[in-house]
Design a protein around this nucleic acid. Structure first.
Lengths: 214, 214, 214, 214
DNA sequence: AATGAATGAGTCTTCATTCAT
DNA sequence: TATGAATGAAGACTCATTCAT
């Protein structure tokens, strides 16, 4: 791989600083509090300097969101152990997703809010890269489901649809926590969620078995 | 009932125009695109006139969202037939919800956007009234589930959690359609959703039976 | 004099209500709080109705200020006893002025602030009527001084200038009270003021005499 | 002393321009005529630029007033010669004050306007800093009077009250000139004023003496 | 490359005045 | 006459973006 010149390193560092500053502002003061002025100050860069790294505010925020999404996905994916069976792996994935969302709950709101702006068809292109993370996650979920099906751990099911629903249910559960509407612990909510997912996927036998493994 | 004078009618009309304009802007361009100027222009009213009907921008948006939630809930609730059994009634409710959301795609977009706005804890109080609609809907769902439990149509389950997840899955399904990510017909998506819900609620026997009734 | 028709009486009543409302608002909420809306509501009249009595806001405020000035002057002038000598009469006048200003201190600020707007030559005409009240008061002061001079109670002096200074000193004393910078009682401040005025007007002998009469 | 960079100079210039523009508008059109738009235009700066120098409108106006008060006080104080006796020094001070006010008629108008603004108790804190200038001036006056008392140049008197009244009379005299109500020359008015002040302070002997020195 | 002062369009809100009823 | 809904011109303040240094 090519050596990074001092300049490249500096550029990369500054760029990261900006994204990190953006993220911190979103987390602590909300999306509307993101101004170029504030971001620059927190990143220790002059306001005008931002434009050396990002075309405009939109692009900067997009990059910040992408960084967050990317990090969360990485966090989730490193938790999955390929040696265990499909159900156990699904459990790991969902649990990891719950934990990641809990960890980043300050940002979660913004990230998910953006999902809806993404459905504006006129700006589809703008959000395309961000949508890829979602697709990647759904793909991973589906792969596990497919494998479970092959292993006859789950009953026959539309795995794409199931992946979609499982993801949505997980997000909803996390959202309920973010809104402060859950009295349970993270673990309690996760287990409740897994029980429902088990209901979706399994015939009675595997359901029983699976509940032991939650 | 009191006769409405010409003035009352006009007032009501203006007020509705403003709420409608607000809704359309939120749905098509997002919350940030709502400016008093634009709302006024779309409603065919002078900028200052808005303040005859709403104290400020926040109140106007809130009123618009409440009108939306209220209307959608009313549409859904009128579809439920009290004489049929719990499962059939659940089917009606979910189907009605799907249809209402399909009918008012822009309303749906607005409601889903606001769901995430609401999760900002700093503004909890602001959204309280709006959350009541959600609670009312979840209550109705739960009542049906409770009754189904009493009638032994469903297997033992945490009905509050189940109501939550059923609602979330329904919304997610509609959402997928709004985002253009579903190739199925409304009917197809609804049936798929009901099948998953059946999986959640029923033991094998009732599952089989229920699938006939979807 | 012509009989007043019912209409005239009503008009007069409404007009007074408006001026009184204006005055109360100035006194309680300050000059900037005077809006046509508020004035109308307090006067129990519709907003648009004001324009039946006054050409515009400026004229209304002017009329209100004039009413206040007129009332204060009347209050002051009724206190002067023509039978006593010049110095006693001057004492009465100054004391009455202090008392009137104390009574109307909420308004005083605005009334005196306006004095300065009056010095805008471009708007001289607008303020002319209000200035007459000032002139009338100064005239009365000067008349007393002139008489005192004739009676040899005061030492030779430019009575016009003295009238001016006495009035200014009186206003300044009242102002200091309005600003909360005086620890004395009204009576104390008034006596202090009179002592200084005595210094202005009298030779040593009459000074001594006058101080008994303060 | 630190060298001023070109930037510092420019900043200082802009800041001064804004204060100067503010002052001119207050003096010619009154407080209500001060709008950010107008100030910016007169200062040759963009509207938003003002906020680089002042937090908000209030602060800008306050800064302008403070600059005015400060400058006027400086002009006055440099005229006082410490080697002469108390009466001569008082003459110098009053004369200097009259001259400064004559030189800066628009400043005077501004200061007198603000005197009445300040008497709004609701905003006491806002004006505190500005009041210090008044106190400083009164303190200087009182010090001269106290010294005169010690030197037996003046007859026994409440020097604090006398300082207050002398200042008020001086201002009133200048004010009368600004309003165009004086036919005398500046010198004539000043001498008239000093004669009255002499009446306040002196027994007959010193009065006679002092009149030679006016 | 980097800075941050400067710009000016855009935002919410207020309110004197008009005018249909 | 009287009403008060409607208008629209201001006003204070913010902030993305530019550009001279």
């Amino acid at each position: 791989m090519a050596r990074l010149s001092r300049k490249d390193i500096l550029q990369d560092f500054r760029s990261r600083s900006l994204l990190e500053a953006t993220r911190r502002i979103i987390a602590t003061e909300g999306f509307d509090a993101v101004t170029m002025e504030r971001v620059a100050r927190r990143a220790g860069i002059a306001k005008g300097g931002i434009y050396l790294y990002f075309r405009n505010k939109d692009q900067m925020i997009l990059a910040a969101l992408e960084a967050i999404a990317s990090e969360m996905l990485r966090e989730i994916e490193t938790q999955v152990d390929l040696r265990v069976d499909a159900w156990a792996r699904l459990c790991q994935l969902v649990r990891a997703q719950m934990e990641a969302m809990e960890r980043h709950k300050d940002i979660l709101r913004t990230l998910l809010l953006v999902r809806w702006q993404m459905s504006d068809r006129r700006e589809r292109k703008k959000w395309r890269r961000l949508l890829r993370y979602r697709e990647r996650h759904l793909g991973r979920l589906k792969a596990i489901l497919d494998e479970g099906l092959k292993q006859k751990v789950f009953h026959p099911i539309d795995t794409a649809a199931a992946a979609f629903y499982i993801n949505e249910m997980t997000i909803s559960t996390a959202q309920r926590r973010v809104m402060g509407f859950s009295q349970s612990s993270l673990e309690g909510d996760t287990q409740g969620l897994m029980r429902f997912i088990a209901g979706l996927l399994s015939d009675k036998k595997s359901l029983n078995r699976s509940q032991e493994n939650i």
